Amino acid sequence: MEKPTIIFSTAYHKKEQVLLVGFRYNQELKEYIKRFSGITWSTTLRSFYVPFSKQTTNLLFEYLRKKDYYIDYSALKTAKNAQETSNNKKYISETNVERLDQFRNYLKGQRLSQSTVDTYTTFITLLLRYLKDTPLAELDNEKIRLFVEDTLGKKHYGISTHRQLISAIKHFSELFNETKIVGLDLKRPKKSKILPGVLSQQEVIDMLRATANLKHRATLALLYSSGMRISEVIQLELRHIDMDRNQILIKQAKGRKDRVVMLAKSFVPLLSNYVTTYRPKKYFVEGMGGSYYSPTSIRAFLKRSCKTAGITKKVTPHTLRHSYATHLIENGVGLRHVQELLGHSKPETTMIYTHVAQKDLLAIKSPLDIAVSKLSKTDKGQRYISLSRNLKR
């Protein structure tokens, strides 16, 4: 039987911050948790809890991991980010706090994703802290340039983050046109052309075979067989899986676009077994109470499966998407079709997989092989030249 996932979160109880330990009822786990020093049951919170501290959290984490329980602590990260944003606001004036709220609403009006809104707002919070009480009418190109250099220099941002920072500032200057920012030439650095890591088809099969848990195996098989993003799998509703037509409808994916991907015939028996066993109600894969499943959980059991399968490459859910695209191209599927299946808006984004696909590259012979082959043919009486020993003269 699958062990329940334990969820760490925080709350205030009796004027004290506490760490909540939530899980689906399990008598064995309940008895084990009760033996942890200092843990208490709260009827009000309907949860076990301990006084919150970094040390206690680490001790409890290690205690639970001894029994191989999986802990989802994504809520702690969210709480930490919210606290950092709140702390950042303390260092800017009330006027700038209002501007920050205006900026957030402006981005939402542009129909940007929530993730992009949060990221851009964080950058502009840094900008307003840097400016302190400088009136927007005095904000010019030089101050922006100094801010960008100072921010990037101290925080060692990567190129993708650098590009997001520049975009955030451009949006800010569009909203508040009373600034003296004129013809701002903040060049976005070119994206790094890093080839995506992929698994071989054999490694994918090995990974799936090494995944003993049915729910986990079905999730990983869907990620690879459909090329879906992890967010798309988490939000996938059962009603959008069309088994008669072997199709999956992905609603409002990245770029607010619907698209259709294939439902692999080999995946259908696994899908049926999983649905019959777990009986999800709305979503393909569900968390506690029928809510969205945690992406942290998926990354964790993918990592465990790869370790069990003896795969030493760094593998993430997106690696399975990269592998899906690469294998399609190696099997002769056209670039345009792959673009549609992945939901890319630009063909250039899909073209990177042509550099990874090895269908044509594998047909090219190394000049060393050609040299050895020629030497073998000219050396009478010897059918094959071995490089593992010295050649006779």
Rank of each mutant, 00 (worst) to 15 (best):
V233G: 08
V233I: 15
L222T: 15
R217M: 00
A210V: 04
Q202P: 00
L220V: 06
L214N: 04
L184K: 02
V204F: 02
G197E: 15
V204R: 01
S225D: 12
D185K: 13
D185V: 13
L208W: 04
L208A: 05
L186V: 13
K191D: 09
D206Y: 09
G197S: 10
K187H: 10
S225W: 02
V233Y: 09
Q202M: 11
K187W: 04
S231I: 01
A212P: 10
L220R: 00
K193F: 07
S231A: 14
V233E: 07
I230Q: 04
R209H: 13
N213S: 01
D185T: 14
R217E: 05
K190Y: 07
A210H: 07
L195V: 00
R229V: 08
S226A: 12
S231R: 00
S226T: 15
K190W: 09
L220S: 05
T219E: 10
E232Q: 02
L195K: 01
P189T: 13
G227I: 09
T211N: 03
E232D: 00
D206S: 14
L214G: 04
L199K: 10
P189Q: 08
T219Q: 05
Q201G: 14
L199T: 09
T211K: 02
P189W: 03
Q202E: 15
L220H: 00
I194D: 15
L208G: 01
L199C: 08
L186M: 15
K191H: 14
P189K: 07
I205P: 00
S225K: 11
S226R: 07
I194Y: 11
V198C: 13
K190P: 07
S225I: 01
V204P: 07
K215E: 11
T211D: 02
K190L: 08
K215M: 09
K193A: 07
L186F: 13
R188D: 02
V233R: 03
L222S: 03
D206K: 10
Y224F: 15
R188V: 12
M207K: 07
I194M: 08
R217P: 01
Q202F: 14
M228C: 13
S231E: 06
V204Y: 06
S226H: 06
E203D: 11
K215R: 15
N213L: 06
E232K: 01
A210E: 09
S192A: 14
Q201R: 15
L195C: 02
T219N: 05
D185S: 12
H216P: 09
K190F: 05
K187E: 10
S226W: 11
R229D: 03
A221L: 06
H216L: 09
I205C: 06
K215S: 12
I230D: 04
L199Y: 04
V233T: 14
L184Y: 14
S226P: 04
E232G: 02
L223M: 06
R209C: 05
G197V: 13
L223V: 10
S192R: 13
P189L: 01
D206Q: 14
H216Y: 11
K215N: 10
K193D: 12
I194P: 06
V198W: 01
P189E: 06
S226C: 11
R209D: 12
P189D: 04
P189H: 00
L220C: 03
P196M: 08
L184D: 11
G227W: 04
L223I: 03
I194S: 13
K193H: 12
I194R: 14
R229N: 05
A221T: 12
S192M: 12
